[in-house]
Simulated scan of single mutants.
Amino acid sequence: MARQLDGLVGYIATPVNLPCGLMARLRYLTRTPHARQAARAAGLVVTERTLRLWLGGVRSPSRKNLERIEQAYTTVRRENIARYLTARLNREGRGTRVEIHPLNQSQVDGPRQHVLELRTLNVRRWDRIVAAWAAGDGGELGRVSKVPGGGLWGMLDNPVAAMMSVMDLEPQTDLARHYDSGGWLARFAGRMLVVCPRCGGRALVIPRPGIPDPRYFSELLFQPRRLACGGCGAIDGWKPEVQGAGLVGAVLGGSEDPFFQRPLWLQTRCAGHILWAYNEEHVDELSAYVGARLRERGGARPTMSMFARLPAWMKGSDNRSEVLAGLEILRELAKRTAPADRSDAAHERGDRPRAHRSMYFRGGPYES
């Protein structure tokens, strides 16, 4: 839970042991008298002279002080963002959806495996959860999550074999600011909604069951895939091309999925263009960005960011209301599965990006 909440907060991406990362944290902790007091309360107890020497670059903090600075920054940042985060997740009583994903059980003996599936629930009151997270109290955070009748893990038959992710159920159009942490499109490639090649209904493209969980989002482009339709039972498989000791990955982009070249289910016409998304989480992220009045960019490689690569017509303020309306259409399409619900824009278009044949090398032979 704490990791998921941390993911909603725009922390400084540059490490504290680099000069620019250190300066950014020190300025954050010393910008006002209140910030200095909060930093001292968080454990950064040094003299004003030492702070001036650090800020002036005359003296560098020791390793122990670097750890204190990082801890103080994380604590103060959490406290400052807690009120905003609570309002964002509560959303005036509408709450925020939580997805509970089954963990990979491929290394578990057959008799001990549990039949698990993706679960979702809507949490409407986040006050105690965010308060425990902001205070860094892991014990309280665990207790709050297990409140009888209202706990998160109480909704699961086997809470040990699951991991949780938090996402907004609706676009964050009420927020004036959006922070781009530099994440790229591959983070939404784990689950894609596509048009079934047999019945024309909604099918799902996911990594083949039983393979290890990826360590990085980029590994999702090289994992064997399975296409499955719950309507007609159609099933198909995909494996990356093998070249020597490496694998040739799929290329993201365009209105077709990069593995089976099927049209994406989430497509609609918008502002004279085609608006598309891979899944509901992708729609939510786009809504948060488009609806924001102030957009901030971070990360070491901003040009790899999904938002930096969006077309100009999606970023312009003139099209904001139309794009948000289009995203609402995609959100409704995600709830439908029948062939009759298919969007008139969801057909083969041949707009896949040029293949750059990225390679992935493993330490040993690849087992498909």
Rank of each mutant, 00 (worst) to 15 (best):
P214R: 10
G150T: 09
R94H: 14
R295M: 07
S165Y: 05
A325P: 01
Y216K: 14
A162D: 01
L193S: 10
I206N: 07
P33F: 01
R91D: 15
R357I: 01
S218V: 13
R63S: 04
G183L: 12
G244D: 07
L286F: 08
K64F: 13
A292L: 06
E285L: 09
L103C: 13
T74E: 14
T75P: 06
T173Y: 01
S255H: 12
L227Q: 09
R269E: 12
A176Q: 06
L227R: 09
A35G: 01
T303I: 10
A38E: 13
R49G: 14
G93Q: 09
G182Q: 02
C270P: 09
M359A: 06
L118D: 10
P224W: 01
L18K: 15
N104C: 15
G142E: 14
Y11H: 01
A35I: 00
G249S: 10
W126Y: 08
G253D: 02
R342L: 11
I206A: 08
G182P: 05
G291P: 00
A42K: 03
S106E: 05
K64R: 12
S287E: 11
Y216P: 00
L185V: 07
G139T: 06
Q223M: 15
P302I: 07
G237T: 14
Y216F: 14
K315D: 07
R349W: 08
D109T: 05
M163P: 00
R83H: 10
E67T: 11
V195R: 01
A186C: 10
V283K: 04
P102M: 00
K146D: 14
V248I: 15
Q37K: 15
H101Y: 05
Y11R: 10
N122R: 15
M359F: 10
M314N: 01
P365Y: 08
I81Q: 15
A162N: 15
L220V: 07
K239L: 12
G139M: 04
G246E: 12
C196I: 04
M304K: 13
D341P: 09
G95F: 07
L26K: 02
R342M: 09
Q223P: 04
E117F: 12
Q172L: 14
R191V: 04
L220F: 00
V194N: 06
I211D: 03
L51Y: 04
Y278R: 06
V283C: 12
T120I: 00
Q105N: 14
R295Y: 13
T75W: 03
G316Q: 11
A35N: 01
K239W: 11
F259A: 02
S218D: 07
A135L: 06
I329N: 01
V248K: 08
E367F: 06
D341S: 14
S181W: 00
Q172F: 05
L26N: 06
H356L: 13
M23C: 01
L118N: 11
G142K: 07
L55F: 03
A135R: 15
A162W: 00
K315N: 06
R83C: 05
Q4R: 03
E99A: 13
V9W: 06
V46W: 06
R40V: 04
E99R: 15
R31P: 00
G201E: 08
G56L: 03
L294D: 05
K239H: 11
R25W: 11
G210W: 09
